[in-house]
Design a protein around this nucleic acid. Structure first.
Length: 592
DNA sequence: GTAGGGTTAG
């Protein structure tokens, strides 16, 4: 058994520990009265040959297991430890508990906790943080309550863990209460507690409260800056996030991949491409290595801003690629309509020994669906199941989309009926959309009924059904949809487009009449219109949802927000510059 | 012996 243990530890670890000789003086593992099979060690005849090992030895081993997440080896150490004189040692048990918690085995951590003859505030804190770090916020909060009831005082370690849990568990909504508690204990301005607290406030959308906590910190570090930057980035507060980034630099803090990941994500989702490029340039100049976490977001930023080539360059330059890097690349190709390339890279990924996860399959399925690769898409759907990945609702959405786009609406319907899960609203929406594309009124109406039942507040499906009826000339049915929308108070989300010019974002809505440059914009658009008509442009009015004559429909089309944004951008940028227009909803066929 | 911030899809 001793030999087994020596073999189970990587030799690198052993030499690091210089323990190979000492390992042989380990006590022989004996069976314990534990009800957990995994903690049992076969008893042998060595009961009498117990040799004590000092606490530092166990401590070092457990710490190594914790750092390198060596759960199996940790269990072996545990097996030996419970035979030693340290089996009831408080600190040793806390270390053991921490090993299980950090390795993500919360069940074993809990068993250790439950069996401990003596506990202190570190014991409680260790398990609370284990739950908090492993996505079990409810358990963390529950245990915190028990800790208080048992009369233990939480410290700054406990509080930061509890606050992290509360931030993840929105139903509890105990943020302000916890903040008050921190003030009472005098920990509210502690940098760890404060960072967790301001992160919590940003997740609740209480940005002013977050700022107050940040301003009150006794000291700031990169984590507190990053927490605030990330908070604003998540809520599309890109300008504020960039401003904070400048503040961070002014105060002499070095941004990390945490800062960059947040900023790239924010720039990408709000269309601040130039600013995003500036941050990227800063990152290069500061000598920061392009690691996957920030690099993946950067790749995504370039892909979403329309440059698949830059996205690909980032992928090539990544110091080390993880599964997310591959998924981001696949998604980039899928979004750009390069289905075949996505399929090639998916195969490349598998050849390289990277195991595709559920998102990899989702990306490759999306790519096939968008490029009309029906057979390939079906092949990957089957492969996913063979690989042991259980399809989830989003995969079914993509398969319905795949079949629907290819025009096989009946097969799509059959697929929905035979799915092992209850169809979600998104699945019916995919079928509805396919019916719009292939002008199938009857099935479209059937799919829409299901959508209305499952997601009555989404205006999109009402508009699609209206369009299906309108384009088929069934105006009475179309009017009925419109009436229903009015009655149920469902409003179409107003379309808006925005464009970045000289580090500022300009936003437009359709028929924008209040813009100071509205006359110049209109003139510019007339100019563009004349030119494109000369080149053969014919207005596509098939999706105009207003019941009007052809000429009026054409006029309506001309004031869509993306056209106004384009005219504005042409007026305000030097000739030949790249113009990126972003839009909150799908671009209409004519504008496209 | 215990703590806080980040990514891909939809």
């Amino acid at each position: 058994m001793i030999t087994t243990m020596a073999l189970r530890f990587p030799s690198r670890l052993l030499s690091q520990l210089k323990l190979s000789r000492r390992l042989h003086s380990l006590p022989a593992p004996l069976s314990e009265d534990s009800d957990d099979e995994s903690l049992k060690f076969p008893s042998n005849d060595l009961e009498g040959s117990y040799i004590p090992v000092d606490r530092r030895f166990y401590n070092t081993l457990l710490k190594k297991c914790t750092v390198f997440k060596l759960l199996t080896q940790g269990r072996i150490v545990h097996g030996h430890l419970i035979q030693s004189i340290f089996r009831h040692d408080l600190v040793m048990n806390n270390t053991l508990l921490n090993m299980y918690a950090k390795c993500g085995s919360l069940e074993e951590a809990r068993k250790v906790f439950d069996k401990m003859p003596e506990r202190d505030f570190v014991t409680w804190t260790t398990l609370i943080s284990g739950y908090s770090q492993h996505d079990r916020p409810c358990d963390a909060l529950l245990l915190f309550n028990q800790m208080l009831r048992f009369g233990f005082n939480p410290n700054e370690f406990t509080l930061s863990s509890v606050i992290k849990a509360a931030a993840a568990e929105r139903r509890g909504c105990c943020g302000h209460q916890l903040h008050g508690f921190c003030i009472k204990c005098g920990f509210d301005s502690n940098v760890h507690v404060g960072s967790a607290l301001l992160d919590l406030y940003t997740r609740y959308g209480l940005m002013d409260d977050a700022q107050l906590v940040f301003d009150a910190l006794e000291s700031r570090n990169d984590v507190s800056w990053n927490a605030l930057i990330a908070g604003h980035a998540r809520r599309c507060g890109t300008e504020k996030a960039l401003e904070l980034f400048q503040g961070m630099l002014r105060e002499g803090f070095r941004p990390s991949h945490f800062s960059y990941a947040s900023l790239f994500g924010a720039c990408s989702s709000t269309g601040f491409l130039e600013q995003g490029k500036w941050v990227h340039a800063y990152m290069i100049k500061s000598g920061e290595k392009l690691v996957a976490f920030a690099g993946n977001t950067l790749l995504d930023m370039y892909a979403k801003s329309g440059s698949i080539h830059d996205a690909r360059k980032i992928f090539d330059r990544l110091a080390k690629r993880d599964v997310v890097s591959w998924n981001s690349l696949l998604t980039a190709y899928a979004q750009h309509g390069f289905g075949k390339e996505a399929v090639c890279w998916f195969e490349e990924m598998r050849k390289g020994g990277i195991r595709p996860n559920e998102i990899s399959f989702l990306s490759v399925l999306t790519a096939c669906s968008h490029s009309g690769l029906l057979d390939e898409g079906w092949h990957y759907y089957e492969l996913m199941k063979k690989d042991g990945i259980v399809p989830e609702a989003w995969h079914y959405v993509t398969v319905v989309d795949l079949l629907g786009r290819a025009g096989d609406l009946n097969r799509a319907l059959r697929f929905i009926e035979e799915m092992p899960i209850e169809p979600t609203a998104a699945i019916w929406k995919a079928l509805l959309n396919a019916c719009r594309m292939h002008k199938n009124t009857e099935l479209g109406a059937y799919a829409a009924e299901h959508v209305f039942e499952l997601d009555p507040d989404d205006p999109g499906p009402h508009v699609i059904l209206y369009n299906i009826y309108a384009s088929g000339g069934r105006w009475n049915d179309a009017a009925r949809v419109r009436k229903k929308m009015k009655e149920s108070g469902v409003k179409k989300e107003p379309a808006c487009s925005w464009v970045e010019i000289e580090n500022a974002i300009h936003m437009f809505v359709a028929n924008d009449e209040r813009h100071p440059q509205r006359e110049e914009i209109a003139r510019k658009w007339e100019e563009v219109l004349a030119k494109i008509k000369e080149l053969g442009y014919v207005p596509d009015t098939s999706h105009v949802i207003v019941h009007v004559d052809q000429q009026e429909r054409e006029v309506n089309l001309q004031y869509h927000s993306e056209k106004i944004a384009l005219a504005f951008a042409l007026l305000n940028t030097p000739p030949g510059s790249t113009i990126h227009i972003k839009k909150n909803i799908r671009v209409c066929g004519d504008c496209h």
